[in-house]
């Protein structure tokens, strides 16, 4: 009896240790720095032109108007944005945004196409102890091609992650904020960057 238990115990640990390291992910952490962020959402981009948009009270007021029922938990002092080109062709904008999860801010980058739709979203910094699954590509893929008309809410148009509902809701808020900023400041009237 004892030896069987010992056998089972000793079997489990090495089996787990033997798993390939690059297959496994962590919760908290810094996953992208500011320089890497636009490349994460526009990997095909060749030129990244940084532009800092000050977050003035007038801009916030306009953003509030477009955000409707979505109420940001953070108003950034300024928005770090990148105009992304591939050999001269304009691909879109990358906007760095922040929103509070349960206790702490989540920082992420939103890639926005010239038509005002989401190209991609990538997590830059996750500071919560739980809910780090929002970092996964398969979760972030849900935001592809979403625009301002989308609710971006769990159980509406975004599949929730059990135990991370607040983080899921935060990412949705942040994506909306980035889309609104693009609409007001980055894209021209014809919807071109």
């Amino acid at each position: 009896m004892l030896s069987r238990r010992h056998f089972l115990t000793s079997l489990l640990t090495p089996a787990i240790v033997a798993l390939a390291p690059n297959l496994i992910s962590a919760q908290e952490g810094v996953f992208l720095d500011e320089e890497e962020a636009p490349r994460a959402v526009f990997p095909e981009g060749t030129h990244f032109e940084k532009k800092v948009v000050p977050s003035t009270e007038a801009l916030r007021e306009k953003m509030r108007g477009l955000l409707g029922r979505t109420r940001p938990s953070i108003w950034e002092d300024a928005y770090v944005t990148y105009l992304v080109r591939r050999h001269g062709e304009r691909l879109g904008f990358a906007v760095i945004a922040e929103e509070i999860g349960k206790h702490r801010p989540i920082t992420f980058v939103v890639g926005i196409k010239p038509n005002g739709k989401v190209k991609d979203v990538a997590l830059m910094v996750y500071r919560e102890a739980y809910g780090g699954e929002v970092r996964e590509r398969r979760f972030m893929r849900q935001y592809h091609d979403k625009d301002l008309a989308a609710p971006l809410l769990p159980y509406r148009d975004i599949v929730n992650i059990a135990g991370a509902t607040l983080s899921v809701q935060s990412i949705g808020r942040g994506v909306k904020k980035a889309l609104v900023l693009a609409q007001l400041v980055l894209l021209d009237g014809a919807g071109r960057p």
Binding site: T13, I16, V17, L19, L23, I24, S25, E133, E136, R138
Partner: peptide
């Protein structure tokens, strides 16, 4: 003991 997440690419996690 031990715990962790293993990503399997297109096969999930």
């Amino acid at each position: 003991g031990f715990l962790g997440d293993i990503r399997l690419g297109e096969l999930g996690k």
